[in-house]
Design a protein around this nucleic acid. Structure first.
Lengths: 148, 148
DNA sequence: CTGCCTGCAAATCTTTTGCACCATT
DNA sequence: AATGGTGCAAAAGATTTGCAGGCAG
């Protein structure tokens, strides 16, 4: 499988766009940052390496990365768009602790298959899905009453 | 089960807040509107009945309805917060056509149970979840190539 | 009076866009 | 020259907040 940079420049080329130093830097920084980055967080990291990069460029590049399916938006319901690396990653869903914010990546093949079947039963061809499980993790349950 | 209005005024009372004509009107309008309303849509409907109601009041009331679990936020990833009636409704997830936006409410008991088990296997106590399946519906697949 | 509510407008916050200039072909 | 790309600042869109006045107990 080709490296993400190559995948990105291929995507750009296919749309008559160009790989630029800024885009390369943003992509590199994005890849190094694991977890779920907001545009602003990414902008800050990028700025640390090259203060001349503008915030709009980060927004624009993140959108390109989404379109090219190298990044994927994850939405935790706070008003901020977050992105995670998608290219070359296994699909996964999210298990989130509502108290401490801990975020575990999960996947269950049986559920995946049932989702497919469920969509089919409604005549849909399933393209993708998002599943978020919200609960309280073990350690937060132990120190009960400590928050809220 | 008590009617939503009662549930809401009980919730308000429990927080030393009051049921007001505006709040009542907003709740009534919200209940009559099925599907997934944005604050602005709801504001427009409310305004049609009583033009003196302000937009901020709709936002504020919608937040109260969320807190009281009478409404629930659904997030389709466009920048707008939408709400649906939650109180007294069965839980359901969403099957969304990426082409025409058709939105079907779905539920699969087996998936629900597996989600519970999956969370448990990570030591989580599952409180709630959100699942969105995105695909292409049958009629959109037939008129293929008609969009995008 | 006191405390909650409301409408309005101003403020915030995130994201997008217009524009003039730059770089590469 | 032509086509994109960029940074900046302004704009846009959604939501929140400050405030002065209003109402109910």
């Amino acid at each position: 499988m080709k490296p993400p940079e190559k995948a990105f420049s291929d995507y750009l080329a296919s749309r008559n766009l160009k790989m630029t130093p800024q885009r390369r830097l943003i992509l590199e920084t994005f890849i190094k940052t694991d977890g779920h980055v907001s545009s602003e967080e990414l902008y800050n990291r990028v700025k640390a390496k090259d203060p001349s990069v503008g915030q709009a460029t980060v927004y624009r590049t993140l959108k390109l990365l989404s379109e090219s399916e190298i990044a994927e938006a994850v939405d935790f319901g706070d008003g901020v768009a977050r992105y995670e690396l998608h290219y070359g990653q296994d699909h996964h869903d999210h298990l989130i602790c509502e108290r401490c914010g801990k975020n575990i990546e999960i996947v269950d093949p049986t559920i995946e298959r049932l989702q497919e079947e469920l969509a089919e039963s409604y005549g849909f061809e399933l393209e993708r899905h998002k599943m978020y499980l919200f609960g309280i993790c073990e350690s937060c349950r132990k120190k009960k009453g400590s928050s809220e």
